[in-house]
Design a protein around this nucleic acid. Sequence first.
DNA 1: AAGGCAAATATGTCTATACAATCAACATCA
DNA 2: TGATGTTGATTGTATAGACATATTTGCCTT
Lengths: 250, 250
Amino acid sequence: MRDNATNSQARPLYQQVKEYILEKINSGMLQTGMQIESEAELVSALGFSRMTVNRALRELTAEGRLTRIQGRGTFVAEKKVQSSLLEIHAIDKEIRARGGTYSCTVHLLQEEKAKPSIAASMGLAPYSQVFHSIIVHKDNDVPIQLGCRYINPQVAPHFLEQDFTKCTVSDYLLSLAPVSAVEHVVEALIPDSWIRDLLGINGSEPCLALYRKTWVDDKIATHSSFYYPGSRYTLGGKFVPSSVGSIGII
Amino acid sequence: MRDNATNSQARPLYQQVKEYILEKINSGMLQTGMQIESEAELVSALGFSRMTVNRALRELTAEGRLTRIQGRGTFVAEKKVQSSLLEIHAIDKEIRARGGTYSCTVHLLQEEKAKPSIAASMGLAPYSQVFHSIIVHKDNDVPIQLGCRYINPQVAPHFLEQDFTKCTVSDYLLSLAPVSAVEHVVEALIPDSWIRDLLGINGSEPCLALYRKTWVDDKIATHSSFYYPGSRYTLGGKFVPSSVGSIGII
DNA sequence: AAGGCAAATATGTCTATACAATCAACATCA
DNA sequence: TGATGTTGATTGTATAGACATATTTGCCTT
């Protein structure tokens, strides 16, 4: 019931099933939206057990290549360029990984009443109490990134008592509770004067802004990052499909 | 051997195992790097079969929450904020999905000798022949994005014969061969005058640039996008962990 | 013709069993 | 001492069988 000899060296059977399907998709034999063979048909065509075929189809579905509907069948998903899991690494680790020396300056760390626009983006009533921090991250004492956070006090009650020159805000927040959702928005802008001052920008060069909104249950924290002009940031790294591992320098 | 009554309604058993592990991680009982119970221990602790436990641990590993080493054990992976699969959608579909009317203008479509810097980024010898296209994408006839591509002729031999006002370049390229790797870099810049002309920018406003490098086997295609100033782009959408589905407006 | 029921088909899950592959630690032998 | 083999623990893969659930189709009844 096995036929590994003709095939190449010792690839798992479920992997062979995945390649069999992908080959049909990539060669154009199976087009977007078309129904593919049922599990039972694949079993009799390939001679593997149903559980093996099922695993292959389940993984291809998780990877976004197929769509399955119970009772109907399995279909080829729409073709998209898709990067791997977008992992957001802490800036201090990124700097150290590049061989730099990380340091940071805490310019503001206080509780305050949120302006209506801020409060609205956090799902709070206007002038609710929120924590606010402004921190400049430096590589070899050169400012690289300005991070501005607003945090719902319910997420991190002891936020003000932390020493964020020792442990980054990200590390602290991640240690408290699991993140249930994230959203990222990126923008190019000419920074305001207070940002220019803190980052040490002279002219009116454009800088990259990255806004992150993080949900912990239904509590929201926001994080606005402004990067020193001229910097380039890799968003997904080179990746091999269906692997997890790329890096976002953010 | 089942105990679904006390637990909530009809969640699959492997899902219950996943939640059991995640609960231990999120509550802090299991810290980053620590070894978790072996499959055999989970089997006797939870009363499910080993295959069910194995599926749960396998999926948590694919989702980046655990690390498994054959012969050693299963360990808690480093905590990261991770977005879902970053899917790159074609700009024409994005504009139509927002209710706009898409159109585009092909400003250049030719074969040329690649300058050394371009050739180097594509892994080609200086002054190799490459295809070069410059296309402006519009929403209701307002320029939104300028796309500039260099393509290895081996990837798309009939590139010059296509009518890209009907079918987008992305759709055409994706129909030819599967993408084996992708890399994205984002930058803020003051656009050159030729970009300002094509996008209809008057002042010296900053715009967002997104550079994409795509591998098809070892052949490389590059794509530089410049967005109209003031635009904001969502990178991962709000997402629920370990689901595939968010959208990148790019 | 309309409604309802049953069968066929398809995916979703779970289990018990088996064997393979890898690693660490220990024991053995030269 | 150093090299080598053995053993136990652990993960990785594969299978057959069973039952659950969802969808479609067609037949049968009214």
